[in-house]
Nucleic acid binder design. Structure first.
Lengths: 181, 181
DNA sequence: TTCATAAATGAATAATTATTCATTTATGTT
DNA sequence: AACATAAATGAATAATTATTCATTTATGAA
């Protein structure tokens, strides 16, 4: 939706703290009042987008994942999906980051987004079941995986570095070597 | 300073977007006008704190680092320092995170904070020189190191999990295994 | 103690921004 | 076309919040 696009763009430019309803409307090509037809207020708009981004992201993470292939292949697929999604949707990454400690996101939205991570846990657990990953807390493993991607994508962006296939393969190798037994 | 403490506390509670000068003053136990004796305006206050937090953090990272000891020992020391600092100063982590895409932080502050990372690069390069770390871009290695800590600390905090010594050792092992050849 | 200077106050003002609503414009049905 | 309904507008209003400044309070030197 154009409202979402506008909000994402503005947050990337000036952060959540610098975004006004007036600007969002202008950027979305509509009158301020029109925003209030679709969303009760700013908080609701931001919660909607927050949840929507999570949904959109998770939808992409398991593209081309095929459980019948080897674990490493599957894990690599998901890892690459997450990386690519975050590179191509960096605005969403920024927006989500900014939301975590904002006064806008409510408990409910937060809980729902946590729920959605389950498929990722399943993936990690498969790695442990097949005796490939270290015998550690699944959450710690997942966090490490996400960290290897998240920090890498942010860093590349802030330093205007385009990640080459070689860069990405090295990043994956670090993550894999760190997680495997 | 009490103003800094107040700002950090409030940002953790409600995010940068939700903090007003009035609240900062109240939290710091002074009148609103008093803030303007010390800082020209909100932007200056936030820039000051941003830079100050970076300085404070980096000061701690090399505590007890002894170049004459083995690389692994030194690397472990720094890694632990970063982790502990972030656990014990989680408010600062949140504040810094929120600032990155805020309308408050100016170019100059941003540049200065980048400069300060140099000692960390040196550390990574030592690891490569001693043929211990993978033969990769130093920035990518450093980013991976930071990611392993950053995401871990955030996750532990958000899930109210206290990291045990065992948890931390496992986290370090993942990071080390990922970076070593 | 008296005076001068510095520091702090917080109510008043200026800006900014969220939200509303009377009016207009588009859409589609008879 | 005439009407009814839905969608959109944006100026006006209500809230919120940054900033100022006339006044008060502390500090310390003479």
């Amino acid at each position: 939706m154009q409202i979402s696009k506008a909000l994402l763009g503005l947050v990337k430019q000036k952060g959540l703290a610098g975004v006004t309803m007036g600007e969002i409307a202008k950027e979305a090509g509509m009158a301020t009042g029109t925003l209030y037809i679709y969303f009760k207020n700013k908080e609701e708009l931001i919660n909607y987008l927050f949840f929507d981004c999570r949904k959109e992201a998770l939808k992409n993470y398991f593209l081309n994942y095929n459980e019948s292939k080897s674990f490493k292949t599957g894990f690599r697929t998901v890892w690459m999906n997450i990386l690519n999604f975050r590179i191509q949707n960096f605005e969403e990454v920024v927006f989500m980051d900014q939301c975590y400690h904002s006064p806008f996101i409510n408990e409910c939205t937060m809980k729902l987004t946590k729920e959605m991570k389950k498929p990722l846990y399943k993936l990690i657990e498969r790695g442990k079941d097949e005796n490939i990953f270290k015998d550690m807390d699944s959450m710690a493993l997942l966090t490490f995986m996400i960290g290897s991607i998240h920090e890498g994508v942010k860093n590349a962006h802030y330093n205007q570095k385009t990640l080459t296939k070689k860069d990405i393969d090295s990043m994956f190798k670090m993550c894999w070597d760190g997680m495997k037994k």
